[in-house]
Structures are given as structure tokens and as C-alpha cells.
């Protein structure tokens, strides 16, 4: 494969290629006249073709990671992000690059009419190059999606760790949703931090909203209880549902060192009693 003639062809027939390419885009499979104006499309195409030509002049068309291709890749990244916001699908964006093949290869054929072998060589090289550039757009898509997911995960983590003060000296952590190892350790750290800040001797960990508890999560719970004890605070685990109680016994998780209560209310009652409080109901005296 070679692309020796590519810079020369681009130099010679750029205007024509651009014309064909834009026409192709407006009528082809990736055409989205509803999303992008013709003028804008032409501007983007021209900009890309200019960068493409400059990068191709380096002669290094095998590896698009080389510095010569950096400006072109940057432009592709910009265009991809822009199109993602405008509502283009990943394949429509990839087609933007792929659709350049036809007009470009037509020029190659015309130019190398007398040497069919060279034409095939050249076509294959250009085709491979455009494939790489087209696939790069999906990489950009992927990366921006991953960024969104990562950000949402972080936000979720922050939202899902509410340590609430129940009474003087008593804090509670109502856990909701599936616990994975990473989330559990973040939650537990913030619980221990709040114990210090509030000077609370008792922490209630309520797992009513936790669908399953596996060995790893149970171990995290036990470690938290142990760490709290080292700091001088006691934990009560409440809201252990029957299925979870069964799993814990099956997994041979020893909770004998931990105070457990069926409900948050029970746990609070115990916590109040331990901190020397009594809850009394008022008797209404009839006159």
C-alpha cells in the first residue's frame, strides 16, 4: 500500500473533491439536513480537507498517531463533539469521514488511468487511512460517554451518603441501593468522619434499603464497626431483612460482636437508652 500521490492529487483537484464530497454528504446515507445547514457542512468539510492535506504532505500515512496528524485528529475530535451535541449518531459522524473515499478515489482513478496497478495500490492506502480517521470519531464518542458515566457515578456516590444526626450523640446512616466495594468504603469513611465531627458515641447503620449483602460488603460493615470501636463509638446495624439474615448465616458471617436490631426504631430506642435517655408518653389529664 502506498499513498505517494495523495498530496499531489489533493493539491491538484481539491476544489473538485470538495464539491463532490459535499454533494455526496447532502444526498448520501448520513445526510441530516435537519441538523446541519449546508453552509456549515461545507465549511466543516473544507476545513477538514485543508487539515487532511497538510497532514498528508508529511508522507506519513501509515500511522495517524504521528505528530503530523495531530491537527487533523484535533479537528476530528472537535467536529465529533460538536456533532454529538447537535444530535448526530456515532455512525453518521463516522460517515462524514468515510464519504470522502468516493470522490477522492475517483480522482485517483482519473489521475492514474494509465497505471492501474499503481491506482489500486494508491486506493488501498488512502482507503486504509480514511478508515483509521473514521474510526477515530467513534473513539472520541466513546471517551465522551465514559466521561459522562464517570461524572454521574461520582455524583451518585456523593448523593448516596447521607449521614444524619438523630439525637445528641447519635448518628444514623440509612443505606439505600446495591452496595459495591468502592461505594461501601466511601460511605463508611464518611460515617466515621461524621462520628468525630459530631462527637457521637453511637452510630446506627440501617440496611433496610439494601437488596443484597455479599461477603465483601458484610466484611466492610464489620470493618467499619471495628474501626468505629477503635475510635470510641459503638455501631448498631438495623433493618436486616430475613433474606439477608439467611445469606449472612449461610456465608458464615459472624455478627455476634455487633448489636443488630430488626428496625431503625428499635435501634434508636436502644441508642437512646444507652446514652441515658428515656422516651415518655405524655398522659393527657382531663380537667
Amino acid at each position: 500500500m502506498s499513498t505517494i500521490r495523495l498530496p499531489e492529487i489533493l493539491q491538484k483537484a481539491k476544489a473538485q473533491i470538495l464539491e463532490e464530497w459535499v454533494k455526496q454528504q447532502m444526498s448520501g446515507a448520513g445526510a441530516r439536513a435537519d441538523l446541519i445547514k449546508d453552509g456549515e457542512l461545507r465549511k466543516q468539510s473544507e476545513e477538514f480537507l485543508n487539515n487532511f492535506q497538510r497532514s498528508a504532505q508529511s508522507g506519513e500515512t501509515e500511522n495517524i498517531q504521528l505528530p503530523a496528524w495531530a491537527p487533523t485528529l484535533e479537528l476530528i475530535a472537535d467536529l465529533t463533539r460538536q456533532r454529538e451535541r447537535m444530535g448526530f449518531s456515532p455512525s453518521e459522524t463516522a460517515l462524514f469521514i468515510f464519504s470522502l473515499k468516493e470522490p477522492l478515489l475517483a480522482q485517483v482513478r482519473a489521475e492514474l488511468k494509465k497505471d492501474p496497478e499503481a491506482a489500486i495500490e494508491e486506493s488501498m492506502g488512502i482507503s486504509a487511512l480514511l478508515d483509521k480517521l473514521g474510526l477515530y470519531t467513534t473513539e472520541i464518542y466513546q471517551a465522551s460517554r465514559e466521561e459522562v458515566i464517570r461524572r454521574q457515578q461520582e455524583e451518585l456516590l456523593e448523593l448516596s451518603t447521607p449521614v444524619v444526626k438523630m439525637w445528641d450523640g447519635i448518628v444514623a446512616l440509612p443505606l439505600i441501593g446495591t452496595l459495591d466495594s468502592a461505594r461501601t468504603s466511601v460511605v463508611m469513611e464518611s460515617l466515621l468522619q461524621r462520628i468525630v465531627e459530631t462527637g457521637s458515641e453511637i452510630a446506627i447503620i440501617d440496611i433496610t434499603g439494601v437488596p443484597t449483602v455479599d461477603t465483601l460488603v458484610a466484611q466492610h460493615l464489620l470493618k467499619t464497626v471495628a474501626a468505629a470501636r477503635l475510635m470510641g463509638a459503638d455501631c448498631i446495624i438495623s433493618g436486616i431483612r430475613p433474606q439477608i439474615a439467611q445469606t449472612m448465616v449461610h456465608l458464615a458471617i459472624d455478627l455476634s460482636a455487633v448489636t443488630t436490631k430488626a428496625t431503625m426504631a428499635e435501634a434508636l430506642k436502644t441508642a437512646l437508652a444507652r446514652t441515658g435517655h428515656r422516651v415518655v408518653k405524655d398522659v393527657v389529664l382531663k380537667a
Binding site: 463508611m188 469513611e189 466515621l192 468522619q193 462520628i195 468525630v196 470493618k223 471495628a226 474501626a227 468505629a228 477503635l230 475510635m231 470510641g232
Partner: peptide, 14 residues
């Protein structure tokens, strides 16, 4: 023993 920091307690348990 009083005032053990959370990070210290977590590490000791680990």
C-alpha cells in the same frame, strides 16, 4: 485510648 482518627482506625482494622 482517646481520639483515634478515622483514617488511622480504618488502616489498623485493615
Amino acid at each position: 485510648v482517646v481520639g483515634m482518627q478515622p483514617a488511622v482506625a480504618i488502616t489498623l482494622v485493615e
